[in-house]
Write a protein that binds this DNA or RNA. Structure first.
Lengths: 205, 205
DNA sequence: ATAATTAATTAGTGACTGCTATATAATATA
DNA sequence: TATATTATATAGCAGTCACTAATTAATTAT
């Protein structure tokens, strides 16, 4: 039985999913503050009031795009560890996948979340980005913890600094080769630290 | 002979040097677009027209603060190599000094130039930041070139990605200890690459 | 004293911002 | 056909932005 709901009023012409995709791309490319309602509505193809009816306000629209991004592009962390043969392999896969993602989204390079933790006038939206950042760090730490609980937090912090650098570098035009090289050197250093069982490199002053 | 020039008109009350210092701090703390003329003039203690008379416009004021920053905080690259006992030592000093700088400028953490290569509405000011970024990369490459011309560009790129990551991490609250640890692990990896004479880690696919 | 010169302030400008009250269009139901 | 319901567009609000014309203040030169 096909249940076709015939809603009462005028049928909507605004495709919310497509609108979110367009908004996500604009926010990723330019950043929250640099994208105006006028540009959003023009690119989506509706007038501003339609956007407000559909999403509430600019910050709420941004938050929905961030959640959308997080649910898709944010999965690479778990994926890296799930398909990995070892902790070292997982860390390398994670970094290499980030290098690939950050360099290959033409016009919207880097990480949408990381690049919007700054230059963000809206407090709530900024806090959302920061909380996703922290959740990612925690997720990485948890994956490491199963193998090396003594180094989980240190390595997770390390990875987050690296990801921030790769995201920023991607935005200033760094090639995937360049980012991959960075990822490989980093993974190699971590591998050495892990296989030698030497926490000294991380912990020493 | 003390040459005291008695200028003709009303003597200025605006201390340009102090005004630049205040502007630099604000731009560093909040970013170019997030600082308004109103806030600048209020914090400096004059009315907007005085700022325009002294510096031209907002972008020109920002550019002068960036040049000021570059002439002081930007010297740590050359300083690291000048006081270093070896290339490896120079790279480590460079990274550790950046960690120290980025974490200890309360309220204005990270690098003024790097954090303003994005979220910048003014084209010229953004290009200035990008050109300083590139000049820094080139300076690092040149210092490496004397010892290892084969790896100069690769390592310089590597360092720039790392600096971007440390700057971004500093802004999200990363401690100096955390950034220093990152710097040390990185320096250690580069040291190993240099001492073993193995370009494979950097060059391999 | 008067004029010339320079620096400051007062009081705005037009353009843009996120956002919305109101009206209109398009549908289902009675 | 008339009415209720939902979705759109028109037009414009109050606020902020970078910036400036016109004026006033403070000094030196004549």
């Amino acid at each position: 039985m096909t249940t076709i709901k015939k809603r009462r009023g005028r049928p909507p012409t605004l495709d919310k999913e497509q609108a979110l995709a367009v908004a996500q791309n604009l926010f990723h490319e330019k950043g929250f503050d640099a994208v105006g309602i006028a540009e959003l509505s023009e690119t989506i193809g509706v007038q501003p009031p339609s956007l407000y009816a559909a999403f509430g306000n600019k910050a709420a629209l941004f938050e929905k795009t961030v959640e959308r991004y997080s649910e898709t592009n944010g999965q690479f962390v778990a994926a890296a560890f799930d398909t990995a043969t070892s902790l070292e392999d997982g860390l390398e896969k994670l970094l290499l996948e980030a290098a690939h993602m950050y360099a290959n989204n033409d016009g919207a390079r880097g990480c949408l979340v990381m690049e919007n933790t700054k230059c963000m006038s809206d407090r709530r939206a900024k806090d959302l980005c920061l909380s996703i950042h922290e959740a990612t760090r925690q997720s990485i730490a948890t994956h490491i913890e199963a193998v090396r609980p003594d180094l989980a937090d240190e390595i997770a912090d390390h990875i987050m600094v690296a990801l921030a650098g790769m995201s920023a570098a991607a935005r200033t035009g760094s090639s995937e080769e360049n980012l991959s090289m960075f990822a490989r050197v980093l993974a190699n250093g971590l591998k050495r630290t892990l296989t030698t069982g030497n926490a000294g490199i991380l912990g020493s002053v």
